[in-house]
């Protein structure tokens, strides 16, 4: 795969610098030629540099919390052409509706926040809802709970699905929910059931956010938490909607950013 040198003129890149991970998508024309992912760590600029390696692109669009930082650090670098930024709302809308043109609602649960975006039949953003400042209803919540139950994060969904009883977890504050889980453990409750209760708590909260945003039609579930099978299953159950999960749900934002970069490049060349 050659993503350097003479091909840079037709290449575009999208990068999504989230609170937990950074995703990169490179396209040549209409084709995705490269995708990569790295943890954000305490040095997002260094991680971006490592992730980019020797990628060359004529246009780059950054999204996610680190988007401004990325523009500052990488704009006007010879290998990258012009770098601009876009919010995650637009990036996920573009990415998800490219993957699923029939999508009317997009749910993105990331590491630090979750959002619901409703789209017009033409794929235009109609409105969006975002969780407030705390970690409730985000990937961070699941991560902390997985840690407290000593289950690897990537197995947490399957672990929860092996639970046999649904225990209500009432606290949605991450700190309080952790102590609630601790009290359940102290009462001898099965870890699988506690895990299931935790998934149920987060997805019920997400469900009310979807209702607030006026969820309608096919629902795309993207962002890192969409890799969790228990979260997907509960979302289907709670909404009763058709849930579409991309092959790489955490790449949807970077893909959307890359699609915008391609559009901007076309405008440049017009």
């Amino acid at each position: 795969m050659d993503i350097r040198g003479e091909m840079a003129g037709t290449s575009t890149a999208g990068i999504d610098i989230g609170s937990r991970s950074i995703e990169l998508v490179v396209m040549r024309g209409d084709e995705v030629v490269h995708a990569a992912k790295a943890p954000t760590t305490f040095d997002p600029v260094g991680q971006c540099r490592a992730l980019l390696g020797d990628v060359c692109a004529a246009r780059v669009v950054a999204t996610g919390y680190g988007r401004k930082l990325f523009v500052e650090a990488f704009d006007k670098q010879p290998a990258l052409g012009r770098v601009t930024d876009i919010t995650e709302i637009q990036a996920y809308a573009l990415g998800a509706s490219h993957l699923f043109p029939q999508a009317r609602t997009i749910l993105d649960i990331g590491g630090q926040d979750s959002k619901v975006i409703t789209l017009s039949p033409q794929g235009r953003v109609l409105r969006f809802e975002m969780n407030d400042r705390c970690a409730a209803g985000t990937g961070k919540f699941l991560e902390i709970m997985a840690l407290s139950l000593q289950v690897p994060l990537e197995d947490f969904g399957a672990f929860a699905m092996s639970g046999d009883t649904r225990i209500p977890i009432n606290s949605m504050c991450t700190v309080f929910a952790e102590s609630e889980a601790t009290s359940l453990m102290a009462r001898g409750e099965k870890a699988q059931n506690i895990a299931l209760g935790i998934h149920l708590a987060i997805m019920q909260r997400i469900h009310s956010m979807l209702r607030r945003a006026g969820q309608d039609g096919p629902l795309v579930f993207a962002g890192g938490v969409a890799r969790n099978p228990c979260a997907v299953e509960l979302l289907r159950e709670l909404t009763g909607a058709q849930c579409l999960v991309p092959q790489d749900p955490d790449l949807a934002g970077a893909l959307g950013a890359c699609l915008l970069a391609r559009k901007l490049l076309e405008n440049d060349n017009d």
């Binding site: 709302i89 637009q90 630090q112 926040d113 969006f128 975002m130 407030d132």
Partner: peptide, 15 residues
């Protein structure tokens, strides 16, 4: 919450 608000506000203006 400034950075979270920035995202919401920029997305609102993008609309």
């Amino acid at each position: 919450d400034v950075e979270q608000l920035r995202t919401r506000i920029e997305a609102f203006l993008e609309l």
